[in-house]
Each structure stands twice: as structure tokens, then as C-alpha cells.
Nucleic acid binder design. Structure first.
Lengths: 239, 239
DNA sequence: TAAACTTATAGTTTATATGACCACAAGTAT
DNA sequence: ATACTTGTGGTCATATAAACTATAAGTTTA
């Protein structure tokens, strides 16, 4: 292993840097029929064969961190333009059995309707798990997941990111149920409607649900441009 | 450089991991006479000699990330038990001129009264800068600093962490001015008092300021144990 | 010694947001 | 036609926030 990286001309590095491998691990969230779910992959080889873990992989040389996360998710799901947020780096020296590997965690929010199980190369080994039914995961992935969930719950109250888990067109009830599921609380329908509509960041599509066995609800759409304009005026999303 | 890290027995690693150097960079915040300040260090060598940057350094093998940050700050300031929060990893392939180096950013909040300039080994090259007077920094350190400030402003509203910047005993006005400075807003004294006292997480020390040239204010103390008990009961700090 | 000044602290009032609740409308299923 | 489900609109009591006024307790100055 190349232990010393000092450039004699610039002299920038005066100590011996430790080289380490860097991975990305993604917590991929989806929302299906009222349940918050996470996409896990089964390990195909090694002593931990058959165990579940977060999808991830190695970062390439000359590749940005966000870019690596996007690439890995594209390989896994066939989707680009996934909504991503970096969590933080996890680097317990003991976290990985084979050597020192630091991993960078990501939260990814995807629309289940977009996701085709067969699209990704590793998709046959991928499966959605309800939040309450997550098994023991490899390495420190349960720890990463805990952190991820805490972060999601905080973020979803501060910024309008929940929409990334819903179809392009959604009803107010769907949105409310998303919040109820993520935050694990019960909400009041009329109050929720008023609060979210008062923010004026949803576009009323003047369209209704179809093929539902009850009164059809109006469909709405989230428009990021509107949100940006509002924040410039000092508006701040809050739930 | 050792390019392949596959353990044949476990077979965990199926691709060639890229090795990278990892550094820590800390944004050290202090609060002095009404101003929020940041501790910067002057680079002693190399082509960028004389330029200012965030204090930081290499992470050691077999050293946790948080532990590395604590060690580096101990070397710099002579202080242990500094309040630390990891920000995230910064890894633009171009961020560091000599080679691929990923850095992990930290926010550190310290009590200025505790900090002795002469304590740290590199202290002679360290200096406090007011937030509004930050110069151009080396590498991507301005970017890290921007992220850090955004994060601090958000965090300070959600969790009682501002106290880490104040002396052990402080007045309500000092606390208010800290918030005013960090959030860059003006607040109303009576309203602020009521709001913070209503939370019941300050201990009234039944003590007063000394040597002030005006009516002395009561001194208060923040008690983390009380805060933890309150959060267990469902209380959540908010500003 | 009194007046001026600074900061601490208490109270009041108004607007606004929230939570809990009721009522009814608009559809579907039996 | 009736029951049932979901959507949607309204009310009211309460809590909270923001703006403002007032006074108290000290220090400095003249």
C-alpha cells in the first residue's frame, strides 16, 4: 500500500496519510399502500451470504460522492434523478470485518410507481421491507438505518421532501397518510387540508381520482419552482 | 498502492476498492462580546503558505471519526470534551490539488472562556475571525464553512446546543443575544424571557452578575439532565 | 443628592395558529 | 333505498406569538 502521499514540491502533506476504502450505503425509501418501506439487497457471497443489507458499493476514483450514490442507485433500480441526501460518514474502525472501510450514508426517496423490480442488475436480490419488519442487517447497517430514519423524520417536517415518495399526482389524504406513517402520529383530516393548502405550494390540477370505490378526491401536484419562490420571500415549510 | 482488498476466504469484496485519504476539517465556533467567531489556522508551508484554512488533519488507522476530530481539536486548543457534530463528507475529486482526499466536516462549539491561545501546539498560527470577516480559505473550506453555518442555524433552533458557546453561568440577555447573532435577527426581551423560561430547562442559580455597570441580571445554567428528562416526556425544543 | 441612564423584569393586548369536533356532500356497495 | 366510505367545509375553545407599555433596580454623572 502506498503509505506516503507527500508532494515534495508543494509540501502540502506533512504527515503520513492513512489510506482507506470508501463505500456508499443507501437507505432507499418507498411508500406503498400506506406503508413506509425500505429497499434491501441480499448478499450473494461470502460468510454473510444470504443476509440482508443496505444497497451500496465502492466509490470510484475521480468520482464525486453524490455522483457515486446516483450511479449505484441507477445500477440497482434503473432510475436516475432520484432524490438524495447525504447523511454522514460512518467510520468505526471495527465496522467492517475485512479492513478499514469508511462508508458514507445516503437517504434516497423514490416513487414506487417508477421503480421496476426487473430493471436493475441486482434487482432479483432486492426486496422491499416495511419499516417495522427490518431484519438484522450486515455490518453496522442497522445503525445507519436508525440514523437515517431519525433524519428523515426531522427533515420531512422542515422541508417539502415527502412528495418524492408519492406519485406525481396525489390526493391530500395520501399526503396526510404519508406524514402519519413517517412520523408515526395521527392527524386530523380537515386541519391537515387547511394547513397544507394555506402554504400555497400545491398545484390544484382540477382533476379527480379514477377507479376508486368511493367519492373521488381532487388531485394535486407539488411544484418545486413555487416552493423556491416562496422561500425567497421568507416562507419556511414546517410541520 | 494496494489496489485489491479482496479477502478470498470471505469473498466480501468483489470489486476493486479505490483507496483514498481521509481528513477531518473542523469549523470551531466561539462567541465573544456579542459576535459569533470562527477559529482559523494559517498554513505554514507549501504553495499556499500564509493562507487561512479550517483546522483539521489526517485520520489515523484504527481511529474512529469522532475520535479523530476530538484528538485534532485537543491538539489545537488543549480542550477535550468539546461539543462536536459531524456535518458530512466532502469529496469533490478536484477539491484537493495533490490527490484524492475526502474530508469529513465537523461543527465544534466551544466556550471562549475555556480556550487558552497558548495551549495548543499550533496555536500561534490560530486566530479568531468574525463571521462577517472570513477571508478566502484554502481548498473548498469556504464551501464547508457555508454548509456549516447553514447547519448551525438550523440546529440551534431545534436543539439546546447554543449553551455550549456561553459561559457555564449566563444571563438571559446573553442567551438572547447569542440567538440574535447566530440567526441574524432581532428579538424582544420580555418575549424571549417568557419563552425560554416556560421551557423549564434552565436552572435559576439565585445568583447575580458582578462588576457590571448597571442593574445585575440573574444567572442561569443549562442542565442537560433536565433536558433529557423533558424530551423523554415528549418535550421538544424549538425556537 | 438628584437626575439621567442602562438594563432587568412584569404585564397587557391583539392577531394568529392549533386542535378537537361537528356536519354534510358525494360518491360506492349491498 | 340504505348503509358505508371518503371528501370537504365550518365552528369554537385554547394556546402561542408578536408588539408594545410600564416599572423596578441598579450605576454613572453633574
Amino acid at each position: 500500500m502506498k503509505k506516503i502521499l507527500i508532494n515534495e514540491e508543494s509540501g502540502e502533506l506533512t504527515e503520513t496519510p492513512v489510506m482507506s476504502s470508501i463505500t456508499i450505503d443507501c437507505v432507499v425509501f418507498g411508500f406503498e399502500s400506506g406503508s413506509l418501506e425500505i429497499l434491501l439487497v441480499k448478499h450473494g457471497r461470502g460468510i454473510r451470504k444470504g443476509e440482508w443489507g443496505l444497497p451500496g458499493g465502492w466509490i470510484k476514483e475521480d468520482e464525486g460522492i453524490d455522483a457515486a450514490a446516483h450511479r449505484l442507485l441507477l445500477e440497482l433500480t434503473g432510475l436516475d434523478k432520484i432524490y438524495l441526501e447525504q447523511l454522514k460518514a460512518f467510520g468505526d474502525p471495527e465496522r467492517f470485518p475485512v479492513g478499514r472501510v469508511i462508508t458514507i450514508g445516503y437517504n434516497a426517496l423514490i416513487k414506487r410507481e417508477d421503480y421496476d423490480v426487473k430493471a436493475g442488475s441486482t434487482a432479483s436480490e432486492a426486496k422491499w421491507f416495511k419499516i417495522q419488519e427490518i431484519p438484522d442487517l450486515i455490518y453496522d447497517h442497522n445503525e445507519i438505518l436508525d440514523y437515517s430514519l431519525t433524519r428523515l423524520r426531522r427533515r420531512v417536517r422542515q422541508a417539502p421532501i415527502g412528495f418524492n415518495l408519492l406519485p406525481e399526482k396525489f390526493t391530500l389524504l395520501q399526503l396526510m397518510q404519508l406524514y402519519e406513517e413517517i412520523l408515526n402520529i395521527e392527524m386530523d383530516k380537515p386541519n391537515f387540508r387547511r394547513k397544507i393548502l394555506r402554504m400555497k405550494l400545491l398545484v390544484d390540477l382540477n382533476e379527480k381520482q379514477k377507479d376508486v370505490s368511493h367519492r373521488a378526491a381532487k388531485l394535486y401536484q407539488f411544484d418545486n419552482t413555487i416552493y423556491r419562490k416562496l422561500t425567497e420571500k421568507g416562507f419556511s415549510f414546517e410541520f
